[in-house]
Design a protein around this nucleic acid. Structure first.
Lengths: 249, 249
DNA sequence: TGTTTATTTGCAATATATTGCAAATATTAT
DNA sequence: ATAATATTTGCAATATATTGCAAATAAACA
């Protein structure tokens, strides 16, 4: 077990559990607590987490390094991606935000579909490399090196010039009272503008995010047209959502 | 087992296992750990992986499909990159176009320099991942999937909003009569606007491109401040260029 | 073909990094 | 304030990197 690997794992545990404890990591990875502490120190210096007494937690607005996140929850994301495909028809203009769920959806698009994809996410653009019939419009702006996406004024201006047929919103918290909310300010701003300018909104979420809320408001729940989760809709109580006019898949 | 074959295998193991270990590869391929280490060093210089103590891990989530072109003329580009560094000072705003020479220059920047880099090239942005003090502004536009850069109206508009201290122009043909010219229309347009809006222009070229011309005009030769080539300036006839007020390195 | 030249590879000596331990210090909770 | 717990620091053992060099191999050339 080499240092780089260990640090990757620490970041994975962090995204999964929202926190890591020194003794927990020390036991799992079978190294001394000192080593874990030093690893956390290094990661903290890179800005990838916040070291606290006893372990580490998320550094609030900054999303974790994409590298670490893309392998998490792969099965769930595959399921979500499959359901998304029903909504994507040839020649649509699809607006896609950053986030690994949307990325999974894009990665599962058929190779020969003709689309225009508008995105601010490097990985999304990159995955479309071998889809010859998909034209990609990339929205510029300040580059966020951890999420590999752009944000800020230029990005928002670029979105305002687009009126997409469909918008794929990466995982967010959804609550019928509080609406759709996000944990990262810059990212939530982007999502907000995307929702404003798109005709049809598909939110990608996980069933455990239904009924929860975060700090930054994106839009009212009934602004969403569809919510796609990894769960079987037959097994969740959806009456409240359908009453609000939202389809759940 | 030839070197190139070995290095390809290393990259394969890397994509499969997300990491490679020196002793593991050394045993599998039956070469010494030193050789593996040198291989990893080379691959790391090309930006294809990240060398860490004990082995290597992925560099970034963005598969640099740039691979093919990156192999070409590596030594020359390293030389060029070294010379470029003399012109980059802390806190400058540096405009960088797509192209592997500029990429090589960027990849060789010191890890802790503070800069603002403005670019339309994915690989350039991607290579700056581990330079925490470099802010990256990415210029949006239509994505060119072969060069992995953006171009078109939006990109040009974005450039017009920047007044960079220095512009690094990727390899072009330079002729004292015909000026600076490029072979690709869209790309030449971008370069043209970059030259118009930047204070100081550094052209990266190879000595065999001096005195040649391509189809699309970028700017007059004397608009360039410096031409950097891989050759020793003492061994080329530069009188004509210096008379035009161009420094050659 | 045979000879020369350059590159690649492995080895050994040396330098540097990583890790776990223990003592000293700081922090938190009661 | 006191005890319990976490962090920092220095140190030694071990693992890994770097460097120069020589042997092996491949490439270039007559």
């Amino acid at each position: 077990m080499i240092k780089a690997e260990r640090q990757n794992l620490i970041l994975e545990y962090l995204t999964k559990d929202k926190k890591v404890l020194l003794d927990q990591i020390s036991k799992i990875l079978k190294v001394s607590e000192d080593t874990v502490r030093r690893d956390i120190k290094e990661l903290s210096d890179k800005g990838l987490l916040r070291a606290v007494r006893g372990g580490a937690v998320h550094r609030s607005p900054i999303p974790l390094h994409f590298k670490e996140r893309q392998y998490i929850d792969v099965e769930h994301k595959q399921i979500i991606a499959g359901k998304v495909l029903d909504y994507i028809k040839p020649d649509m203009v699809v607006l896609i935000d950053s986030g690994t769920s949307a990325l999974a959806a894009v990665a599962n698009l058929p190779k020969d579909i003709a689309l225009t994809v508008v995105t601010n996410s490097f990985p999304v653009a990159s995955v479309l490399e071998d889809h010859p019939k998909i034209e990609v419009l990339f929205m510029g702006g300040r580059l966020n090196k951890t999420a590999f996406s752009t944000s800020g004024f230029e990005t928002i201006e670029a979105i305002r010039n687009i009126r997409a047929d469909i918008c794929l919103l990466g995982i967010c918290s959804i609550d019928l009272n509080w609406g759709v909310t996000g944990a990262d300010y810059e990212d939530s701003l982007i999502k907000k503008v995307m929702v404003e300018t798109s005709k049809y909104i598909i939110a990608l979420s996980t069933s455990d995010k239904l009924g929860t809320s975060e700090s930054f408001y994106i839009c009212a729940a009934n602004r969403l047209d569809v919510i796609i989760t990894e769960a079987d809709p037959a097994e969740v109580d959806l009456t409240a959502y359908s009453q609000a006019g939202i389809e759940i898949r």
